[in-house]
């Protein structure tokens, strides 16, 4: 028996909007500590890892670990039918081939039930080692989204370089080049507006902007984004979900031949 009640249903709506274009189908793994998802995109160049911990739910019941295969496009269609202020409850029974999404309006005068067919997805679960990163940049998520969008109008790859001067985003294309440098800036009124650069070693890596722009669909989830880089690992672009968990995007770099 599985029943999770999320008062801030809009969070789940935003999570789906942030991953449904990157990943088509995924297994949702439910355990007593929360639910998670790990899935690569079809090209295996990017990986999304989602975690929503049980303490973020008003009510969380998961009698035994279970995994449910869902088509994220269909799930998004159903969640789009939930109001932004609705309470969303996910219900599932062991052995059932459907999952139910229940939407309750804040005044409890409207209750909707959407039942979605589950699917069998045989996805490998990858081991993601904890790592020491050469550089970790924490910045306003809107700023990162703006940079990725702007650079994508000039080129299709971005070189992200972290030095003691700051973090530089560069691209080049047929019409020319663009360089955007952000310096560490902690003298701001609100902490979420700060750009904080933790650099253990300088690092510079190249990535496809198409994926970065897909990741920025998670911007509504968090005011800040953290970008962690090491030359021998995929970059991690993380959007924390306040008191609940995170959406992490891993992107493999492009290497000079």
């Amino acid at each position: 028996m599985l029943e999770l009640r999320l008062v801030q249903g809009s969070l789940l709506k935003k999570v789906l909007e942030s991953i449904k274009d990157l990943v088509n189908d995924a297994n949702f793994d439910f355990s007593s500590s929360g639910f998670s998802l790990q899935s690569m995109d079809s090209s295996h160049v990017a990986l999304v890892a989602l975690l929503l911990k049980s303490e973020g739910f008003e009510h969380y019941r998961c009698d035994r670990n279970t995994s449910m295969g869902m088509n994220l496009g269909n799930m998004s269609k159903m969640l789009k039918c939930a109001g932004n202020d609705d309470i969303i409850t996910i219900k599932g029974d062991d052995g059932s081939d459907t999952v139910t999404f229940m939407f309750e309006s804040p005044t409890q005068d409207k209750i909707a039930d959407f039942e979605m067919k589950l699917m069998d997805i045989d996805s490998e679960h990858l081991g993601i080692p904890e790592a020491e990163y050469h550089a970790i940049v924490k910045m306003p998520s809107a700023e990162f989204a703006r940079i990725c969008k702007d650079l994508a109008s000039i080129g299709d790859t971005v070189v992200i370089s972290v030095t003691k001067e700051g973090v530089k985003f560069s691209t080049r294309g047929d019409i020319g080049t663009a360089n955007i440098v952000l310096r560490q800036n902690t003298t701001v009124d609100k902490p979420e507006d700060a750009t904080v650069i933790e650099m253990n070693e300088p690092v510079s890596m190249t990535f496809a902007l198409r994926y970065m722009n897909s990741f920025t669909k998670a911007t509504p989830l968090s005011n800040t984004v953290t970008i962690s880089m090491s030359p021998d690992l995929p970059v991690v672009v993380e959007y924390k979900i306040a008191e609940m968990g995170y959406v992490r995007f891993y992107l493999a770099p492009k290497m000079e031949e």
């Binding site: 690569m40 090209s43 295996h44 160049v45 990017a46 990986l47 490998e124 679960h125 990858l126 081991g127 993601i128 080692p129 790859t157 190249t206 496809a208 021998d232 690992l233 995929p234 891993y250 493999a252 770099p253 492009k254 290497m255 000079e256 031949e257």
Partner: peptide, 14 residues
């Protein structure tokens, strides 16, 4: 030209 690596170049099956 740049060679696009994949996730599987870095992370192995559990």
């Amino acid at each position: 030209p740049c060679l696009q690596r994949t996730i599987l170049d870095y992370f192995k099956d559990d």
